Amino acid sequence: MLNFNVDFTGEFVAFFLLAVCAIVGAVMAINFTKVVHTALSLAFTFIAIAGLYILLEAEFLAFVQVLLYVGAITILMIFGIMMTKHDSEGLEPRRPLLETLAAIGCLCLFGIIFYGIRNANFPAESAPFTDDNTREIGMQLFTQYAIPFELVSVLLTVAFIGAVALAKREEEDPQ
């Protein structure tokens, strides 16, 4: 059942280190009590995931990961944290039974996923990848998927305007 014949190549070592960094960053994000530390550990996780995308030869996804998640969302979270008041921030009481049950649940989930991956029959590669996948994504995006792309941009613009309108209304109506 467990066949661990692994060639220790540079790609395997890089994958292992990036995977460990992503997992450690995610666990730190869950366990930190200060919100700024949580946001920074999430940025660390996002960077490790971008590195995994590079190993998969998906440079466009890695670029988007760094640009959107590390750059925009993490900075937005930090600005949001800095602009709000955290005077009543306190520590939660420890719940050993809940933490033990959560750890057991995580181990069971890990076992199920590990068993499923080890027994899965992944299909062979169906279509060869192009040499320049970013160019291929751009060609598909601006030819075949041009209308959905524009609809998403309009939807995001409307959501942004709605968020600004809601924030403005809350600012004008202090209670």
Rank of each mutant, 00 (worst) to 15 (best):
F79D: 10
A26M: 08
A58H: 05
A22F: 03
M82E: 13
I54F: 15
H37S: 12
M82P: 04
H37P: 08
V36P: 04
I30T: 06
M28G: 09
I47G: 04
F79K: 08
V64D: 09
G71C: 01
T33W: 15
F46H: 12
F46M: 13
A50H: 01
G51P: 01
T45K: 11
V64Q: 06
M83F: 06
S41C: 13
M77C: 09
M28H: 09
A29I: 10
M82C: 09
T74H: 05
I49G: 02
I81Y: 02
A50F: 09
M82T: 05
A58W: 14
G80F: 04
V66Q: 04
L76R: 00
M82I: 07
V64P: 04
I81L: 06
A62M: 00
F46D: 13
I73W: 10
L40I: 06
I54L: 15
F60V: 08
E59Q: 14
Y53W: 15
A29C: 11
S41N: 10
Y53V: 00
A58Q: 08
I49Q: 02
A29S: 10
A48F: 05
L56A: 07
I30W: 15
V36M: 14
A39M: 07
T33N: 15
M77V: 06
V64M: 11
V27F: 13
L40F: 11
Y69H: 01
A58K: 05
Y69T: 00
T45R: 10
A43Y: 09
V24S: 02
T33D: 15
E59L: 14
T45W: 13
V70Q: 05
A29D: 04
S41P: 00
A62Q: 02
V64E: 11
Y53C: 06
Q65R: 00
L56I: 08
L52M: 08
I81R: 03
G25A: 04
T74I: 00
V35L: 15
V36C: 11
I54H: 14
A72L: 13
V35F: 15
A43Q: 10
E57V: 07
E57F: 12
F60K: 09
K34T: 07
A62L: 06
G25W: 10
A22Y: 05
G71D: 03
L68W: 11
I73H: 00
V35G: 01
A43W: 10
G80A: 02
V36S: 11
Y53T: 07
F79E: 12
I30K: 12
I30R: 12
F60S: 02
I23G: 02
A29P: 00
F44P: 03
V24I: 04
L67A: 07
A26S: 09
G25M: 06
A29T: 03
A62W: 08
F79S: 05
F79M: 13
I47Y: 12
A62N: 04
G51V: 03
V35Q: 13
I75W: 14
L56F: 11
K34G: 06
A58P: 01
G51S: 00
A50K: 00
T45I: 04
H37T: 11
M77P: 07
Y69R: 01
F32Q: 10
L42N: 07
G25Q: 03
F63D: 08
L76T: 01
T33F: 14
A43R: 09
M82L: 14
L42H: 06
I49N: 00
F44T: 05
L68D: 05
L76G: 02
F44S: 09
I78Q: 00
L67W: 13
A50V: 07
Y53K: 08
V27L: 14
E57T: 03
N31G: 12
V66F: 03
